[in-house]
C-alpha cells in the first residue's frame, strides 16, 4: 500500500498543481485534512472524484498518523482530522482548553483477515495463537493443529495503517518478531501467501481472493456483518474529527463521503467495509 499510495500522492500533488496553475485567478476554498495513514487512501480516492465535480474546493490531504491529525485539529491547522482510533481523554481535554469542540464522525470499518495458503488444513485460530505466531513463540503449524512445518510469518511494513491495526488489535503491546517477513502492500501479502504453503499473512477484508484462504478467529467467521456488529475481533471504526458540527464545504464533503453511492464506494474500493445505510 505504501508504494502505491506514495505514487498516488505524487500524482495527486501533480494534479493539484496542474489545476491550481490552470485557474490562477479563481480563489478556491482550501480544506486541509490531516491524520491517520489508514484513512488516507479512502480520503484520497473520494477527494479525487469529489474535486472532479466540485471545482470550487481544494482538498489538501496529508498523512502523519492519527495523533498528528488530532493535534493539528486542536491547533487549528486542519479542518478535518483522520483517525483510526477514538480521541484519548487527554486529547479531548487539550482540545477543550484550546476552544476546540471535536465532533466524531465514523466513515468506514477497517477489518483485517488472517490468510493462509489454500492447501493449509488449519481453518481457525484464536487471537492468542495469532499473537504467539507473530511474536515468534509459536513457530510450527503442528502447535496449532496443522502439519509439521515451520510457519513463515508475513507482516507489513511498520508504517502502514494495516500494520498499525494488526499491532493494536492482535499484538496487544507484544512486538512482532524481527524474523517476520515484510511485504509492502496488501496485494504483495496475498501474492506471497499464495506462493508459500507455510505462510500466514494478514490483509484488509477487501483484498481476499481465491488464491488464499481466510481463517476464522475462534468460532467467528469473517464477514461484513460480523465486522459491523463488532463481533470480529480484528476490526475497528475509522473516524473523522471536525471542530464543531461541520458546515459549508466541509459538511458537503463529509456528506459525499457518507453517501452509499459515492464516498462509501471509495471505502469499498480501498478494501474497507462501507457503513450500513442509516
Amino acid at each position: 500500500m505504501s508504494l502505491q499510495s506514495f505514487m498516488k500522492k505524487t500524482l495527486f500533488t501533480l494534479l493539484l498543481g496542474a489545476t491550481t496553475l490552470a485557474t490562477p485567478a479563481f480563489a478556491k476554498e482550501e480544506i486541509v485534512i490531516n491524520g491517520s495513514t489508514t484513512v488516507l487512501p479512502v480520503m484520497q480516492k473520494a477527494a479525487e472524484s469529489y474535486m472532479a465535480i466540485n471545482n470550487d474546493v481544494d482538498l489538501v490531504i496529508s498523512g502523519g498518523g492519527s495523533g498528528n491529525g488530532i493535534k493539528a485539529l486542536t491547533d487549528g491547522l486542519c479542518q478535518i482530522a483522520m483517525s483510526s482510533r477514538d480521541m484519548k481523554d487527554n486529547e479531548r481535554e487539550l482540545a477543550k482548553k484550546k476552544g476546540v469542540d471535536p465532533v466524531r464522525i465514523a466513515v468506514a470499518v477497517d477489518a483485517l483477515l488472517p490468510v493462509v495458503h489454500p492447501s493449509n488444513p488449519v481453518k481457525s485460530l484464536t487471537l492468542e495463537q495469532l499473537r504467539g505466531m507473530y511474536a515468534g513463540e509459536i513457530t510450527n503449524w503442528k502447535q496449532v493443529g496443522g502439519p509439521d512445518k515451520t510457519i513463515a510469518v508475513i507482516s507489513r511494513d511498520t508504517s502502514s495503517g494495516t500494520y498499525e491495526s494488526w499491532n493494536d488489535l492482535v499484538m496487544n503491546k507484544v512486538k512482532v518478531a524481527p524474523s517476520a517477513l515484510l511485504q509492502a502492500s496488501n496485494g504483495a501479502v496475498v501474492q506471497a501467501v499464495s506462493k508459500n504453503p507455510n505462510a500466514i499473512g494478514y490483509i484488509g477484508f477487501g483484498y481476499l481472493d481465491k488464491s488464499v484462504k481466510g481463517l476464522d478467529i475462534g468460532s467467528i467467521k469473517a464477514t461484513a456483518e460480523t465486522a459491523l456488529a463488532r463481533q470480529w475481533p480484528v476490526a475497528r471504526e475509522l473516524f473523522l474529527f471536525t471542530n464543531g458540527q461541520p458546515t459549508g464545504n466541509t459538511q458537503k464533503f463529509i456528506e459525499y463521503l457518507l453517501d452509499p453511492q459515492k464516498g462509501q464506494k471509495a471505502v469499498a474500493e480501498v478494501g474497507f467495509i462501507p457503513l450500513p445505510k442509516k
Binding site: S2, F6, S62, G63, G64, T158, S159, G161, L182, A184
Partner: peptide
C-alpha cells in the same frame, strides 16, 4: 533500500 522504500511514504514528515 527496502526499508526506506517500504516506510518512507507513511513516515510522519520531519519526525
Amino acid at each position: 533500500p527496502a526499508s526506506i522504500a517500504a516506510e518512507m511514504a507513511e513516515a510522519p514528515f520531519r519526525g
